[in-house]
């Protein structure tokens, strides 16, 4: 099964919509709630990052019998130093993002922690790509 969603940068009222839809589908498929939580926590932090740091993005979620693969591709400023961005506490978030309860530099490390496999790549001035895999 493949699901696709688009995300708009800056649109905090809809941040989390895709994660919510994916959660619904996984529940219907009777996936273990502990696994669902890991999937949607990763996807939600990744979705919030697109809203917080990029201009627009596309999410593809692939659900197989043995794994769930989430791909996020955004158009945005990109990340100049990925190893720095992966460090706990590193954040360039605006006050607006902090008001929303994010922007403490914990998103990417938490995605890494919850994922079985996590790939991140970025081109400065173009955008950022994430691939998050969770084994079922």
């Amino acid at each position: 099964m493949q699901l696709e969603y688009s995300i708009e940068g800056g649109d905090f009222s809809h941040a989390g919509f895709a994660s919510s839809q994916v959660k619904r589908v996984l529940k219907q498929l009777n996936v273990d709630p502990k696994l669902i939580k890991r999937v949607v926590v990763c996807l939600y932090e990744a979705e919030v990052n697109v809203v917080a740091h990029a201009y627009s993005g596309i999410i593809h979620v692939l659900i197989n019998t043995n794994e769930i693969v989430m791909k996020l591709a955004d158009k945005g400023p990109g990340i100049p130093d990925i190893s720095l961005a992966m460090q706990k506490g590193y954040s360039t978030a605006s006050d607006k993002v902090r008001e929303m309860g994010f922007g403490a530099g914990m998103g990417l490390p938490n995605i890494q922690h919850n994922a079985d496999d996590f790939k991140i790549s970025s081109n400065v001035g173009e955008g950022t790509n994430l691939e998050i895999t969770i084994k079922l």
Partner: peptide, 27 residues
């Protein structure tokens, strides 16, 4: 801090918060 809440694996949890916006509910 919602990112903080998202690090917690515990079930049967009450969230006590001073943040009241749509992301509080999403989290």
């Amino acid at each position: 801090l919602m990112s903080d809440v998202l690090t917690i694996p515990t079930e049967k949890l009450v969230l006590i918060t001073g943040l009241s916006n749509i992301q509080t509910v999403r989290t």
